[in-house]
Structure formats: structure tokens, C-alpha cells
Design a protein around this nucleic acid. Sequence first.
DNA 1: ATAAAACAGTTAGGCACCTAATCATTAGTG
DNA 2: CACTAATGATTAGGTGCCTAACTGTTTTAT
Lengths: 184, 184
Amino acid sequence: MPHLHLKDLPRYECLLECAQHFPVLEPSACEVFLHLLRTGDEAFRVTDAHFQAQGVSQGRFTVLMLLYDKTSGQMTSFTPALLAEQAGVTRATMTGLIDTLERAGMVTRSPDTADRRMLSVELTPAGTAFLEKMLPEHFRRISLLMSALTEAERRTLVRLLGKIAAQASESFPAGPTVQGHAHT
Amino acid sequence: MPHLHLKDLPRYECLLECAQHFPVLEPSACEVFLHLLRTGDEAFRVTDAHFQAQGVSQGRFTVLMLLYDKTSGQMTSFTPALLAEQAGVTRATMTGLIDTLERAGMVTRSPDTADRRMLSVELTPAGTAFLEKMLPEHFRRISLLMSALTEAERRTLVRLLGKIAAQASESFPAGPTVQGHAHT
DNA sequence: ATAAAACAGTTAGGCACCTAATCATTAGTG
DNA sequence: CACTAATGATTAGGTGCCTAACTGTTTTAT
């Protein structure tokens, strides 16, 4: 499920040639774009391989992390709707994610006493144990992947990526996948 | 279908705190990792929105581009297997992609006279016209997205991304999704 | 020459995500 | 107090990708 489906990135001369037919094409912009997608895919692949080996999907891992993070902080309960919003998936998808995690015994659904429409999702001890068992290898992979960069380079990279992300949000505002209600 | 499912990236203090529980966690490495996935997703979203508006998926677009690129160069015919390899999908998936493109009248399948196992896939005039109609906007979006960066910054970014990609290939060699035969 | 292996393409079935429609509950309004 | 509107969760159905099993063709080895 990578974003960029290409074994080899086109060579720079190829982009230059292509720019002759399409004056809009900026070779240096295309080059950055392709490298960004490619490297993002590679980084994803590194952690996803580990997830798969542990039997969780990216989506399920995110849910576990959100719940885990919460337990160390304030004890505000997580509803499926809030989880969906934070995780960036639809509520329908969150229903499925929680279904699977609940069958695996990692989370529980309990009815909210105040509002009977809502549920409260919580990590079970088994879920916590699972996460704490797999997280060290997860972080180890990230550290190893980034060991190619010095601290200064990391700061530069974060800054440049931030510029692109900001430009994306500004010029191409995210089509609100938000379902239910437009909140403010 | 983004890689990173998270509305908000964790703050840096949060990573620092988390590093107390997991000594393996390098905050600066995690920060780069998260920004990389996030920005890659954003960049993908920008072009994918355009693809969806034009009624093609990323995979189908890649196939069209491979075929288009070929027509301008040497006339070696593209078999589904070669397309699959270049596009980074399985042959089974390529069958489906070509099915859809053929139904849409953008490509044709013709039997290879020499080896009757093989097919030759080619772009139709309609497919070429479709691509040439949509490519300018595609490139315009990429240029606009990258307009946040100077030429020097673009070179730096490509170099840093390349370092990460190289590290990924070295430390985490791609599990050969190659089906059929292990070539070499 | 023929049986086994390798190979091109396809089909069947699964997974993770999506949108749209549905059911139950709460909130707002005459 | 109804009665409509809004909200939380779910179900139903679709898409794009996957793996594994299959059909037909060519190559290889005996």
C-alpha cells in the first residue's frame, strides 16, 4: 500500500526532457516530490514490517498508542468518535479497529453511564503488555533508520519538511473527512 | 490510506518524557520520523486529490505514466509482468489495473506473437489524450507544493532524504515481494 | 520424446480503509 | 410534552491492494 509505485525514480535528465513538453514541470520540484514520497514509503515500510510481524496493522497500533498515551496522563476516557478523530480515520473504520482489538483481548468497550449513546474504550492489561513488549523494537528501528543523520541534519530536515507541510495545508486545505458535524 | 494516522504529532516534550520509559527512544529520531511520514502523506494527498477528481487511482496513473514514458523513447513493448515490476505491485494487482484501464478504453492488450504466454500492453490515443490533459495540473500542484523551498533547500532535502532511504535499504532490505522467481 | 520445472497471466478470497445509510439516544423548540 | 434535529455507534457495500492457488505455454532434463 505504498504511496509511490515506482521501482526506480526517473533520472534528472528525464525530468528535464519531460519539462520541454510540459512547461509547468519544475524538475527540481518534481525531484523533491518523488524523493519525499519514496523515502516516506521506505520509512513506513521499516516500521510496518515490524507491525506485521507482531500481528497489528498501522491503524490498530495507532489506537493502542492513543490509549496508552492517555493512561499515563489524565484519565479522560476515550470514545470511539474521539479515537477516530485523533487517529485520522472515520468512525466506521474505528468500529472495525476496536472490534478486532477487542476480539484480541487488548481493549474493552464499556457503556458510558451518563450518555447511553457513548462507549468508553480502554486498554486491557494484555494490551498494555503487548505494547510494552513491542515498543522497544519499534523505537530501535526508528533510531537505526535515522542514524544516517546528524543532530544538525535532523533539525534541518524537520524544518524543511515543516515548510512543505505548511504549504500543503495552505494551498491545498484538507477536504474535511470529518463526518457528523462541522465543528467550528 | 495515509501511512501515519495521527491528527496531531506529539509534542517534543512528550517524546522526551516517553524516552524516560523507553531508553531506546531517541526523541530527535522519532521527531524526524513522524515529520517524514506526515509530510509524505500530505504530499501524496495533494496529488491524490487531483487523481480522484480525474477518476484514476495512484496505481492506474503509474501504469499510464510508464506506458506514456515508453512511447516517447524506445518502442519495447510492456508486458504486464514488467509493468508490475516497474510499478511495484504484484502481477495479480496489475491484472486488475489493466482490466480497469482497458474497460475505460485507455490501454489495449494484444497477444505476443513470439511467446503465447505473454501480452503486450499499449496506451490508446484516448489514454494518451487523458494523460496529456491531466498532467499540467499534476505538475502545477507539485510546483506549488514545493514553492515553499528555495533551490538550495531542495538540494539539501533531496540529499538528506537520500541518506535515510539508503539507510533503510541497507539496514532493512526490502522483503522481496517479487513473486514467481528469485532473479539473481 | 516426454515428464518435470519454470514462467505469464488470471482467478478467488482476504484485509484495511472508505462512503452512505441505519438505529438508538439526547438535545432543542413549539 | 411531543417532534424534529443532532449526535454516537454500527452495518452494508465498494475500492485497491495483497497472497495463494490455478490455467496455459515454453524450457529443461532425462
